[in-house]
């Protein structure tokens, strides 16, 4: 398997002296689904600025498919990696949605028919069909976020990097977006790297999680990260509600093999656990139940 992104010993301080990144090491394989979590001000956005060449590292610390991103030509770079930032107004600078989404493909030197095809496709992907002639100041924040995503999708990069994609979206749009990302990842082999605070979307968007707090403090499968409640607490994180609920259920005697991270997983795990008990799971209160429940709750409370 090929390495999509490789970051080694990356340090970065802003001109005012703020140290934003301290010895960051990240290694992402092609086709992986990665989420980067961490408190506000942890350096997630700063890290992403390195991935589209806005901030240039001094050495060859950031590599995309083996090439040092600082010395890549723009045309090559935008084919490899597309970054969508959180603030859509900064990313929609043309007068219509169509022109914004066509901007990248036109700069790649594609033919007009191809550009048109890509714009239509990107709009359909994010669910904004018919928005071609809309002007950004007539759109809602969530719509602008989708348009900003479409404007990067139209370049069809091999690695898609998203900064807080679900923030400010309504529940349906959020679910749609999660579906879009999963479809791109599963069916088109696109590597996705997402920074977000939306822990309940985590299990669907991550094979693996990095916890960033100026430096990488932890890395691993989602469940391992969230089982470590000291780590979770220290980094201003929280475990998904369903995860905590099943921890509590366990105190009442409802034990599953693995603590589920999502609703879908909970159905699977519960079914398995109950089948193993010959079709019946009994819950009960014993001496230490309340104590155990309190322990679980307080271990994740901030």
């Amino acid at each position: 398997m090929k390495t999509a992104i490789s970051i080694t010993d990356l340090n970065y301080s802003y001109p005012d002296g703020t140290k934003a990144l301290d010895n960051v090491n990240i290694e992402i394989e092609q086709g992986e689904k990665i989420v980067i979590m961490g408190p506000n001000g942890a350096g997630k956005t700063t890290l992403f600025l390195h991935l589209n060449g806005v901030i240039r590292a001094e050495q060859d610390n950031v590599k995309i498919f083996g090439n040092n991103i600082g010395s890549m030509k723009t045309e090559d770079r935008i084919r490899e990696v597309g970054v969508v930032f959180a603030e859509p107004d900064d990313q929609l600078f043309m007068s219509t949605v169509y022109d914004d989404i066509a901007f990248g493909p036109l700069n790649m030197g594609l033919s007009e028919e191809e550009v048109d095809r890509r714009v239509k496709k990107a709009l359909a992907t994010v669910g904004l069909e018919g928005f071609e002639d809309k002007v950004p100041h007539h759109m809602s924040f969530g719509q602008k976020k989708k348009a900003a995503l479409a404007a990067v999708l139209s370049m069809e990069p091999r690695v898609l990097v998203l900064d807080e994609p679900t923030a400010n979206l309504d529940p349906k749009s959020r679910a749609d977006l999660i579906r879009v990302i999963n479809d791109l990842n599963k069916n088109h082999g696109i590597t996705t790297v997402i920074a977000m605070h939306d822990i309940n979307a985590l299990s669907e968007l991550a094979d693996r999680v990095y916890v960033l707090n100026r430096s990488i403090v932890a890395e691993g499968p989602t469940r391992d990260i969230f089982s470590d409640h000291v780590l979770v607490k220290e980094n201003n994180l929280d475990a998904p509600d369903i995860f905590k609920f099943f921890k509590i259920l366990k105190c009442f005697g409802g034990d599953c093999d693995q603590t589920p991270m999502s609703i879908d997983e909970s159905v699977k795990e519960l079914t398995q656990a109950i089948e193993a008990l010959e079709g019946k799971m009994s819950l009960h209160i014993h001496e230490s139940t309340h104590e155990m429940v309190n322990d679980v709750i307080s271990s994740y409370r901030h």
Binding site: L49, N52, G53, V54, T74, E75, I78, G82, V83, F85, E87, D90, Q91, F93, F103, G104, N107, M108, A151, V152, M155
Partner: peptide, 13 residues
């Protein structure tokens, strides 16, 4: 500055 970065990251020259 941010807008310019966003344009540059889409290949603006």
């Amino acid at each position: 500055e941010r807008v310019y970065h966003s344009m540059a990251s889409k290949g603006y020259t």
